[in-house]
Design a protein around this nucleic acid. Sequence first.
DNA 1: GTGATCTCGGAACGGTCATTCCAGGATAGC
DNA 2: GCTATCCTGGAATGACCGTTCCGAGATCAC
Lengths: 209, 209
Amino acid sequence: MPDIKHFNPDVVLDDIVQVFWHQGMATTGIQSLVTATGVSRSSLYATFGNKDDLYAAALGRYIEQHSAPAFAQLAATSTGLTAIEEFFGTLIDVRCSGAVAGWGCMVTNAYAGPECADPGIRTLLETHHGTLQSALRAALATAADLGQLPPGTDLDAAAAVLSTLAYGVNLRSRAGADAGSLTDTVTAALAPLRAESTPHTAHTGVTRP
Amino acid sequence: MPDIKHFNPDVVLDDIVQVFWHQGMATTGIQSLVTATGVSRSSLYATFGNKDDLYAAALGRYIEQHSAPAFAQLAATSTGLTAIEEFFGTLIDVRCSGAVAGWGCMVTNAYAGPECADPGIRTLLETHHGTLQSALRAALATAADLGQLPPGTDLDAAAAVLSTLAYGVNLRSRAGADAGSLTDTVTAALAPLRAESTPHTAHTGVTRP
DNA sequence: GTGATCTCGGAACGGTCATTCCAGGATAGC
DNA sequence: GCTATCCTGGAATGACCGTTCCGAGATCAC
């Protein structure tokens, strides 16, 4: 019997993700969201609650729409180290070129902002981190099965190193680090995980005489 | 002949560093700085300029007072890998316990905030990154001289990996990551740089049967 | 069509923001 | 002591903040 919503909350939340991702939580005013979505303040508040709730919803949406698919593909692809290479490759592509170049990762950005103090956000960050880590571990396990890894490699430790590295890549991309050097860095980090091909040497293109 | 300042700008800037470091640029109001320093708005503006200038000055001070000494020690200590271990060790200590636990690194935080768009800030970030990188490279060069590194190790690539990892450590510490797992991660990243002692195995305490 | 119920746009609220201005106080050369 | 010069505290400014409220409009069961 009542009136029904004149907009699709899911679509609107996607727009909101863009704004928060691009501008950050603290620097984004509700007015920006109103103009970006075309939905009035009242409706935003009625649908999502206050600003903190709204940001939490947006961050959750970001994770399930941007992070989770990438993690799932990483975990599911059965090519071992190649899957990891591709994961970092597309990560760097997204961060350094295209529509969202220089925006960084919304999750990584959340780590450094005041929103990180919020317990609800903390939970999102922790599950995100756990998912990333286990996806990397799964890919490493596949690599181990394929005999790509040196015997005795500690998969959990390697996954921790790579996930921590990913945060660094996300950060550096925001300052305009070029894709090439980021790729070199990732390649160098992956090098010791390659079973004895050209041991301990990174393919950075930089040769030291 | 004129009146002279009633406060020491250097001391005041140190106080301002604390506030910006703890609360972030966007969420810190001038009023917070007034109450923290005991200096009135007028004097702050007269001495440092507007808020952006003030933040830039604070970030510069942070780098020269917190980052630079650590980098200098890292570069100067002649123990090679041990120096790098110590660098990360004290880094993790500072980030995870003590007065500034959970604050993260002010520079790392700047990467993720809107202040990163400012060209002046960008310059600070870039020189900071360069200094960190060359300090790591110097320590690695020492390690190579000491025969601690596998022959043929690409020092620049290794330094890039470690510096990127440091950003990740700083970020994760803000979310409450415990010092132990961060240390394990760093140890695992350093493991392949150790010349053939227990190759490719990290000391995470996690043993896989 | 009628009416109950929800939504919507926009105004309104008190608070805080960064910044400026000004009157009065402190300083130092003379 | 006088005066020119600067510094300082606090008020004032105008814009924006997040949030709430309300009248008007839209919807659906009947």
